[in-house]
Design a protein around this nucleic acid. Structure first.
Lengths: 340, 340
DNA sequence: GTGAAAGCGCTAACAA
DNA sequence: TTGTTAGCGCTTTCAC
């Protein structure tokens, strides 16, 4: 099982290495006869090009690096799923994917791009102030940011249309006739840190709710059963007339759905619940929850495509937002007639 | 931003390239003075080694490839999470991770290992008959299989102790005093395909249940709300005395928990439910469900460690099974006294 | 349509 | 403790 080289193939086919190289990457015309002999030799020898050598000589690695900062409070499963989809799409376009996970991502990133190990980069979970952003802005490496940094100018970004998502939730509840609504958000620290995701969703919701003439409020939530119970108790204590609930924190969704009935609000008769979560999650609750999708697959493949496009020299636009898709399921319904 | 090479560093530090190389990978002793000058030059120039060149010259890529076959019915989120953990651990050991996802994984695998792009391989989600297995057995590439192939001889495998998991569920229910128990499994096709995971769990459960003198049954389940309802109706129709439920299908867990009360079985007073799922999932249901853990993090990091160990020349044993960890939560409780 | 030859940036004998 | 030298397997001018 010793390494078969291009030279071996050339010898066997009775041609020069140059020719073999060109047969493989089709960068110049080759007579049908030679092509066949080379192909035969390749098959017989079981030749596979050495990617490192190729990268060295051609000065491009054909690799897209994906950096995933993993410091604490991330929603790992979602990110992981997006990454998988990035990989699928990238491979479909003939690129390999290098997965950089960890805490010192900036160093890794530098090493990998400077070291010619990757010729494009996808940054997962970019926050408002993200050290990786300066890194990619500095070097001229093609990159795609998932998330919105404070200053996205000159960068290719991809994100959920969070504002739109929040607005869609508000619209849905307004359409159903709700007046007193609340958004149950992420943990308090998420807001203190101003992660753009949470902030923007909240913003879109509050604005649209106001526009639609609803009374809207907000409460952060830790996501555990206890904290969700506490949050709900508080909400219903202060505003018992609340009938519309938007749930951002993934973990809180099942709890809200099971707690509301215990608090005398049958879903969806007495209260409507809308969640922001992947469709897969939405159908696993009972009742299934009306949701604005967080489309992991779409995010992942789009990111990969944006990266590939840059590698192929296309000019891609700045910020791409993936718009809201609300699916009505069993947790939301028109308000009961006020007094019937 | 032009590429800084080892030669540049050498020139600047006034030493030979060899010396720089050795300073970097510490494979021979260097005087403190030289080391410092080289370090200084590296810092000043912002040097980063070219990984492709390194791989070419040293004949090792320092990369671990992870192959994930994605054909249809996989539980993507779980696999994705394991992969992330593999990456974290591999990086911690100084290895990069190449993510091979797709459908023609065997070809990819061949190309990447033969092409010297990776010097070890982790195969995710290995089934009884898996084409990748022959591939790695043929070449002598260090590999770790997640899952058990029909013939694991000579291979390094890592898997959940499914038999043990099934047995642990049976034991727990037996300890609580249940007599009529059922395992709600994966989709029927999963069993037809004899995916070892499902088969072995079922096996462990049935055996242990028999040993503990319980009456045990089994029903496959599609995981949707409807199919779960159907499955439960059937179970309780045929054996209304069933009080112990083991749920394998992740998606069915919330449905079982919410359907049982509707069928007159309050959980955990009238019926105990045990699930096989990640702890994170277990705490998101209500009530939280007693579960045998599917430890994604542990699986991932262990796999990476096994790969690294082989790369460092250690001899690692054949099959590693990760034993059952059952956590009692709110969905299981001792049987009520028969007639109190 | 095909070859010869000069590297790409790094490592690792071998020498000193 | 340090330097010289010869490649690793491939791409790519330039010449035929």
């Amino acid at each position: 099982m010793v390494l078969v080289t291009l030279a071996d193939v050339a010898r066997r086919a009775g041609v020069s290495p140059t020719t073999v190289s060109y047969v493989i990457n089709g960068k110049r015309s080759i007579s049908e006869a030679t092509r066949e002999r080379v192909a035969k030799a390749i098959a017989e020898l079981g030749y596979h090009p050495h990617l490192g050598a190729k990268a060295l000589a051609s000065r491009r690695s054909n690799v897209i690096a994906v950096t995933v900062p993993l410091q604490g409070d991330k929603h790992v499963p979602l990110i992981a799923e997006i990454v998988m989809e990035v990989a699928v799409t990238a491979r479909r376009h003939g690129r390999n994917v290098l997965l950089l996970t960890g805490t010192e991502v900036v160093d890794d990133l530098r090493g990998v791009t400077m070291g010619g190990a990757a010729d494009a980069v996808i940054l997962m979970d970019v926050e408002l102030e993200d050290p990786r952003v300066e890194q990619v802005r500095g070097t001229q490496v093609p990159s795609v940011l998932m998330g919105l940094p404070a200053d996205p100018s000159g960068l290719v970004c991809l994100d959920l249309d969070c504002v739109g998502n929040g607005a869609a939730c508000a619209d849905h509840l307004a359409d159903l006739g709700h007046h007193e609504v609340v958004l149950i958000g992420e943990s308090e620290i998420v807001y203190q840190r101003h992660k753009s995701f949470a902030d923007r969703t909240l913003d879109g919701f509050m604005r649209r709710a106001a526009e639609r003439g609803m009374n809207a409020h907000f409460r952060p939530c830790e996501g555990t059963f206890e904290s969700t119970a506490g949050t709900l108790a508080r909400i219903l204590g202060e505003r018992p007339g609340t009938t519309g609930f938007v749930v951002l924190h993934q973990a809180a969704i099942p709890h809200v759905l099971s707690l509301l009935p215990q608090l005398g609000r049958v879903v969806p008769e007495d209260a409507s619940v809308v969640a922001v979560c992947p469709d897969r999650t939405a159908v696993q609750t009972s009742p299934q929850v009306t949701n604005v999708a967080v489309p992991a697959a779409q995010l992942g493949s789009r990111a990969a495509e944006l990266a590939v496009a840059q590698l192929e020299g296309e000019t891609v636009e700045g910020v791409t937002l993936i718009g809201p898709t609300l699916t009505v399921r069993g947790s939301s319904a028109p308000m009961r007639a006020p007094r019937a």
